[in-house]
Design a protein around this nucleic acid. Structure first.
Length: 674
DNA sequence: TAGGCCAAGATTTTC
DNA sequence: TCTTGGCCTA
């Protein structure tokens, strides 16, 4: 099997790709343009390493999203034809968790830490503010968290703007610490600390992971780069694969300057450019090239296809978002019937999640099966989060945020008064709420009534009982079923939705689905790392990932452009190609230089298409409650005109008006350029 | 203490 | 517009 792989790949890959596959030792920088067969190269490279005798446990492949990690692991397994239990393919964050689970005691945390997502962080911030009487009026919690994150990761320092929040920040951090909770930044930050402060730990990982491969390198943050750098310090076998034109995560700290940093840090690096595009038609690629050429800050690259022609890009200006949805549905149906295209070969891309709504309504009305990836995930749903919070509290009783959530779901008669007493006790003694409950329930002289204290004791018993059962690590699904029965979650749902028992039923069905997921996790023979903590970590890190469904074949893929990165479809629709959406008004508002990233985003969207690309740009759109006039995205103008065809529906008026508009835009640009 | 009512916020993208 | 969280009252 392995030998076959060795013989074969030369026939399947072009010379540059071969070089990328064969250059195993030393630092390597692979610049891989869109559609240049990057995934194939990576998978072949790994299997080539295995064939060359590198043990699987010595290879570490890091990606950016869960989807990419899963995909890569799957492809390698398929190619090699066997399971690779010791090969580590993981996201940076998940890999951070892996190190922390083994090493976090060095930093004085306990290894049953909770991971807080943005939601949890916001709750904690609210709680903290309340506690120290910090007024949050007119405070943008989200922005505050972003600022905290930047300070924490050393991106910025305190300034006049942020200084007033310093006490809040410190208090927030000490709470995180008290609750034994980590946020996403910590998952990178703390491993860095471990690797740099504890040489014996660093050595362990450096020795083990002799070969490191990073996909989507352009999206790594400075912190992640540092992490990577520390891991590869000893052996220097670091291979990074990226494309500066597809860097679309700068808002999350991605820094494409890491490419330059890499070159400086590894002067002996070999560079390999993959410039031949195997995915898109010539037309589509020419459009993409035309657009991206407007960016100034690029590492030059010249993508080519080696083929000719392709059907033109179709541009349509619907009246509003409903007409847009109708148009897309109509085209999808035609494609399905006339060209025998499968629904799953079609991608509908949007800039923001809220654009999905009208499209979803359209799909439902036209009975087109679809799936939406991204958006509110299953695990974010309320009923699921309730259950997860119970699990988290069992895993880590000091997790106050989970405790607060669970405490009164269902209602347990613990009111504000009681909570205040407990919180005060916790604050004074610097202990968690759960410990405070313990103390209060046992104390003779507690200000709490006998009844309340026995309620608390009952709650403590409930949690501790299930804690033991869940920690035993076996039959979690059954244990959860028992828990749900014991707290009578069903009655809770019914009382929460008295007017609408359908909702209650649906939510309960979700709970059952969740338990199925737990069961699948427990009984998966490939899963060697079962257990409550592992499960919870996995869930938290996969918040946005939807559950893999077997029946996803045969469904149109509706997703954000960000989620579409790394994927491809025969036919792609990009909806809402309007000024203010792509480029997004907020992004530009923030910083005008962001226009380049927005353009890259558009570039990514275009290059997802293999054969045919449709772009739609509404003239009006309902935003919130009002209807606003929309102008086409300025990026449309950057597509060479000869590649574009206006859609036949409503052609007459449309075209002349659009032409007028473009003339206007052109004039505007000419002016601003001088 | 719990349920109902009112007001405010909605965040661009993800781990 | 719709949901969610906070506040007030019974």
């Amino acid at each position: 099997m392995v030998a076959a792989v060795r013989l074969n790949y030369q026939d399947e890959l072009n010379p540059e790709q071969c070089r990328a596959v064969e250059t195993i030792n030393g630092p390597v920088l692979i610049i891989a343009g869109a559609g240049s067969g990057k995934t194939r190269v990576i998978t072949y490279r790994i299997s080539n390493m295995l064939a060359a005798g590198v043990p699987q446990s010595a290879i570490l492949a890091l990606t950016f999203t869960n989807k990419a990690a899963r995909e890569m692991a799957l492809r390698v397994r398929e190619l090699v034809g066997r399971k690779l239990p010791s090969l580590v393919v993981s996201t940076f964050h998940a890999f951070g968790v892996r190190i922390l689970r083994e090493q976090i005691h060095r930093l004085g945390y306990r290894d049953n830490f909770s991971i807080y997502d943005t939601h949890d962080q916001m709750s904690l911030l609210r709680e903290t503010a309340r506690e120290i009487k910090f007024s949050l009026d007119n405070v943008d919690l989200y922005a505050t968290l972003t600022a905290f994150s930047r300070i924490k990761s050393g991106f910025t320092v305190w300034d006049d703007q942020t200084l007033p929040y310093q006490t809040l920040y410190n208090e927030y951090l000490s709470h995180m610490r008290l609750y034994n909770a980590l946020d996403f930044d910590d998952l990178i930050q703390l491993p860095i600390r471990i690797l740099s402060d504890f040489p014996e730990a660093a050595q362990e990982y450096c020795r083990r992971f002799q070969y490191i491969l990073v996909d989507e390198f352009q999206d790594t943050s400075r912190q992640q780069y540092r992490f990577l750098h520390l891991l590869g310090a000893e052996h220097q076998n670091v291979c990074v694969v990226g494309d500066d034109d597809q860097s679309i995560y700068s808002w999350r700290g991605a820094d494409y300057q890491n490419l330059m940093q890499f070159e400086a840090d590894y002067p002996t690096f070999q560079e390999i450019k993959l410039e031949r595009n195997y995915r898109s038609s010539d037309t589509i690629l020419a459009a993409a090239n035309g657009v991206i050429a407007h960016n100034t800050n690029r590492k030059g690259k010249n993508l080519w296809t080696g083929s000719n022609g392709g059907s033109p890009i179709e541009l349509y200006h619907p009246e509003d978002e409903r007409a847009e949805a109708a148009f897309i549905c109509e085209r999808i149906k035609t494609l399905a019937i006339k060209e025998k295209l499968k629904y799953h070969d079609i991608g509908v891309l949007i800039r923001t999640n809220n654009l999905a709504r009208a499209l979803e309504e359209g799909f439902l009305a036209e009975k087109i099966p679809y799936r939406m990836s991204g958006g509110e995930s299953f695990f974010q749903r309320r009923e699921i989060k309730d259950l997860i919070s119970y699990m988290r509290l069992c895993a880590n009783p000091d997790d106050d945020i989970s405790l607060l959530r669970v405490m009164n779901t269902p209602r347990r008669g613990v009111g504000r008064k009681t909570l205040e007493v407990l919180q005060e006790l916790a604050r004074v003694q610097s202990i968690s709420l759960f410990s405070a409950m313990h103390a209060a329930a046992a104390a003779e002289d507690s200000p709490l009534s006998q009844r309340v204290r026995s309620d608390l004791a009952e709650f403590i018993n409930l949690i501790e009982g299930y804690r033991t059962r869940l920690l035993s690590g076996r039959r979690m699904a059954e244990t959860l079923t028992a828990l749900i029965a014991e707290i009578d979650y069903w009655a809770h749902l019914v009382s929460e939705h008295q007017r609408n028992d359908k909702v209650a039923k649906w939510k309960f069905r979700n709970i059952e689905l969740f338990i199925d997921i737990v069961r699948a996790y427990e009984t998966d023979p490939d899963n060697l790392d079962r257990g409550l903590f592992q499960f919870l970590n996995r869930i938290t890190l996969q918040l946005r990932d939807d559950i893999e469904q077997d029946d996803d074949k045969g469904k149109v893929n509706l997703m954000t452009i960000h989620a579409a990165k790394g994927l491809e479809h025969e036919v792609v629709f990009v909806a809402g190609v309007e000024n203010g959406i792509i480029p997004h008004a907020r992004a530009i508002e923030e910083n005008e230089a962001n226009i380049e990233e927005e353009r890259r985003l558009f570039y990514v969207a275009i290059t997802r298409a293999r054969r045919k690309l449709y772009l739609t740009s509404c003239r009006r759109r309902k935003v919130m409650r009002e209807v606003i006039e929309c102008a086409p995205s300025p990026f449309l103008e950057e597509i060479p005109a000869e590649l574009v065809q206006f859609s036949e529906i409503d052609v007459t008026v449309e075209q002349s008006e659009a032409a007028d508009y473009f003339a206007l835009m052109k004039a505007k640009f000419a002016r601003s350029a001088t």
